[in-house]
Design a protein around this nucleic acid. Structure first.
Lengths: 153, 153
DNA sequence: TTTACTGCAAATATTTTGCAATATC
DNA sequence: GATATTGCAAAATATTTGCAGTAAA
């Protein structure tokens, strides 16, 4: 990510904390900084590990607390594709793609497609102010389809 | 739901079980029958309660097992809108709408809209065979927007 | 100085698993 | 008759909560 973009998002966080009268703690900024290093989806464990690797220890409670704040601030989005793991992603990244999920093996692929996003932006919805959207397309990935055809279903 | 539709879906289940060499147990059919009585989203607890109310007891293990089969069979879809509750819905119902989720209060509203679903159907995606899609639009519901404006943000 | 935030550990909630009994094929 | 499926209870996992100490405003 470009330094400029990072600074911009960091400022958004600062603005949000100020607006909500929340404190600007080192933990919150460190967590956000580490999140920015992920190129795609991440979960709580990965984030915790990433912080430990950088010799920065935070409790699970603080992690969860901060993630909620970041979601509310609109800086990250939450994905819950399978039952077990809740994943997050920088909102900035999520806005550029939709998700293809294999119903067989669970593999998730990202697909850049602007038309659908534009369609959503153009939707006129009564009594609702859209902020962003998540689109998940379920189906068969090529590997699983091939495997099924070979085994005769 | 119409009796004809129910019979059709029941037959799909039978076909799926046969294809996968899974057994046609009374529990599986009773669970599916009870699911069909829900007009919208439901979770594991609601389903369990519904079965108990009809004097039909099944273990949680069987419930989870059967729900997974029904998802794999394409008869129901899984929604994980907030962290806490995993919800399910008849695929047939889910296909007719998309979800508006308030980022403030968490309220979920269903919106019937065929254009987006059609757009998705028309998408040409390499190395992927779509089966169905879930679209979630996050934003502010009218109540929360009104409340925010009154409180001056 | 006030009190929001943090870390830790315990509590909670949900889903999974092991195993003996049972029912399907 | 062989074995997939069930129920039950225990185990595993993820997230939340209570509380005392710490740090931001």
């Amino acid at each position: 990510m470009e330094a400029k973009e990072y600074t911009e998002m960091r400022n958004l966080l600062t603005g949000y904390l100020a607006e909500k009268k929340l404190r600007r703690t080192e933990e919150r900024y460190m967590i956000f900084q580490n999140i920015c290093s992920f190129p795609g989806h991440f979960d709580v464990c990965m984030l915790h590990q990433q912080l430990e690797d950088n010799n920065y220890h935070v409790s699970k409670a603080t992690l969860y607390n901060t993630l909620e704040i970041l979601v509310d601030a609109g800086l990250i989005v939450r994905h819950q594709i399978n039952t077990k793991i809740v994943q997050y992603e920088l909102r900035k990244l999520a806005d550029t793609h939709l998700h293809l999920i294999c119903t067989k093996c669970g593999a998730v692929r990202e697909l850049r497609d602007s038309t659908l996003k534009t369609d959503v932006d153009n939707l006129k919805i009564a009594r609702f102010t859209p902020e962003y959207c998540s689109l998940y397309i379920y189906g068969l990935c090529s590997k699983c389809k091939y495997r099924m055809q070979r085994s005769g279903r």
